[in-house]
Simulated assay, not measured.
Amino acid sequence: MRIKNVFRTICCLISICCSLSVHAYRVEPMVSEMEPFGKKAQMVMRVDNTTTQSLTVELLPFSMVMDEYGNETIEPADADLLVVPVTAVIEPGRSQSVMVRYLGEPAIDESKSYRVSVKQVQVDRASSEQANVGLLLQFNTLINIKPKNTNPHLTVTNIEAQGEAWHIEVTNSGNSYGRINKTNWKVSDGVQSVSLKGSEIGKLIDGTLVQPQKKRIFTMKPLEGFDLSSLSIEVDSLE
């Protein structure tokens, strides 16, 4: 069954989880890259229990496709990603290593994106402990399967005003995912210009991922004094 959810909602959830992780648990890495075969087709995640109670988590793999507005469509991907263990009980202050291996088609010609959901599971406790269960948290890690010799090619293909913000359309004509925060931009309106590094772009734009052969429309805080009607943005990829 297809599950559609908004990327911003996921980011919000991840942000909430991160802010509460000191009272719950941590998952590392949250973003990673693997290859479709060989040694790099496998990785290890770690779940740290930072609470004073036992933690039970469930780990489920999903394939992920993102539309131009950042909305995600995810589907179960058990045939593509092997996650071991599927469930784990982690004692207070301890960690659980989780093996993730790509089992999908090895001869892919462009990158593919997946989520591994790490979900805290409600466990029945004695009545004296029920009040300490707290908020059940869920992390949605991002894994990109990237074949060798594939690269993103990001270009800004449209710029327009949307209320007080700018809408920046970024097209990826490459065969690998690209990330806005891994590019440098030269912004010019013919009169003045400015160079923006990836970290600076990240402060102006929400979101970063552009999948291969797709486009994303990002909302950007306007640059003061620039004329939008003659604005151009040159993108220099760092990946």
Rank of each mutant, 00 (worst) to 15 (best):
S199P: 04
Q162Y: 07
L196P: 10
S232D: 15
A88I: 07
G163Q: 07
K197N: 13
K197T: 12
R94E: 15
R216A: 10
G174H: 00
I180M: 15
K39P: 03
I145L: 06
S113E: 00
K215A: 06
N49V: 06
Q211A: 11
L55D: 13
V133R: 04
L196E: 12
V47P: 05
E72L: 07
D189A: 08
Q96G: 09
V86K: 15
I10A: 09
S32M: 14
M45G: 01
V65H: 04
E160W: 15
R26W: 15
S15G: 15
G202H: 13
W185K: 01
L59D: 04
D124R: 04
E91G: 08
S232M: 14
V89G: 08
T219Q: 15
G190E: 12
E91K: 07
M34R: 10
V133Q: 03
A41E: 04
L238A: 12
L103P: 02
V210C: 10
T51V: 03
L59Q: 08
Q96L: 02
H23A: 14
I145C: 01
L82F: 02
L135D: 03
A126D: 13
E28M: 11
M64A: 12
I205N: 08
G134A: 12
I74G: 01
G134N: 11
N181R: 13
Q211T: 03
K119S: 12
Q192M: 14
K215W: 05
M30H: 09
V133G: 03
E105F: 00
K119P: 00
P29R: 05
K197Y: 04
V22H: 13
W166R: 08
P36E: 13
Q122A: 09
W185S: 02
L55E: 02
K197G: 14
D109W: 01
S63F: 00
V6E: 15
I233V: 15
V47L: 06
S32F: 04
I205C: 03
N5I: 14
P29F: 04
S111V: 05
A24L: 06
M99G: 04
T56F: 03
V156Q: 03
G174T: 02
S176C: 09
A126G: 08
A79H: 07
K119R: 10
I16T: 15
T183K: 01
G178S: 02
